[in-house]
Computed example of a mutant assay.
Amino acid sequence: MYHYIIDQTRIQTRNFDRLLGEVYGFLTEYQIGGEVHRVTRLRNVPELVDTARQSGAKTIVAIGDDNNFLQLLELLAEQEGIVLGYIPLVSNTSISHVLGVRGLEDACQAIAKRRVEDFDIGLVGRNYFFTRVDFGLINNEIRKGSGGIFSSFGMISKLRLLQSIPVKVSIDGRLELSANIIAGSVINARGGIDQKGSALFSPHDGKLDLLLLEKRPTRELIKFRKSIAEGRFEEVPGSTVLHGRNFEIEGPKNFNVLIEQVFLNRSNLSLGVSDKKIRVIVGKGRRG
């Protein structure tokens, strides 16, 4: 039986009611009913997951945003035999892109077809992450393809003022390098296909991918501003791309770190791939 956990915490009420009505309609159409659990002031996500587990749940579906999915991931990573699904009520999210679902109907179709893949899970310290960890040049817009500071010619003056950040990186306890960067990312999973048709940043290879972007001439930063704003540093000439299972990153005191959707100030990062995997339902758009 499917168990649906609904969290409207970060979604506007007027939109939530309409979107949830559409979801119920699609679930009925595709005959994928189940028990519905809603997050309230009295019942939080861990309690709802525990209730679903005690009921013998084999599939738990997050209905909400990426934060809701990540909460369930954190709770289910240690559980065997439970599949995680996702119906995003927010369009074009990072995780829906990775899973290959586009829109509510597409997500509900994916739940009905129940095509499952085993995904690697990233670790930063003791915390899990599914997509990426960013550090260095970070702001709320860096992952928005059209809204980042690099997307407007009116922000050229800011490009010129960017200061490099010194970092030291150790990979799998062997390779070490030092670099002065303006931004960096460690990626477990990212949606997209390269120019040769190959999947980028596979979440099935047991490795993480490190991207480092060093200070470039202003003309190059302007030319590749969209790639930088979207976190696709590998498209910028002179960027560094490395692969490994474990990374130790040392930066200046209290430099900016973004773990999925959570901002922190850290001077050292310890990242790796968990021995655990998470079974997730994917859509028809999933590649890699």
Rank of each mutant, 00 (worst) to 15 (best):
I182N: 06
G272Q: 06
Q163S: 12
I32T: 15
G100Q: 07
I182D: 10
K223N: 04
S151E: 06
E141N: 09
T51P: 00
S94D: 03
V236T: 11
S227T: 06
V90S: 02
R43S: 13
N68T: 15
H204E: 05
S198C: 12
E248M: 08
L242Q: 07
V101F: 02
R287I: 08
F263K: 14
I149D: 03
I142Q: 04
L76E: 03
G251N: 09
V101G: 02
H243T: 15
G103V: 08
A110E: 04
A52S: 15
H243V: 14
E234T: 08
P217H: 02
G147D: 13
V61N: 07
N188T: 08
R143Q: 07
A112F: 09
E35Q: 11
E260N: 06
G56N: 09
I142C: 00
I193G: 01
N246Y: 12
K276H: 14
N139C: 08
Q261M: 02
R245C: 06
L242Y: 08
Q8C: 03
R41Y: 05
V98D: 00
L221M: 15
L258V: 01
K196Y: 13
V280K: 03
L161T: 11
N92V: 00
P166F: 08
K253C: 05
K277I: 09
R10F: 07
S227I: 01
K223P: 00
R232L: 14
G173L: 07
D7W: 01
G231K: 07
L27E: 07
D106Q: 02
I95Y: 00
D205V: 05
I138W: 01
V101D: 02
R132A: 08
E105Y: 04
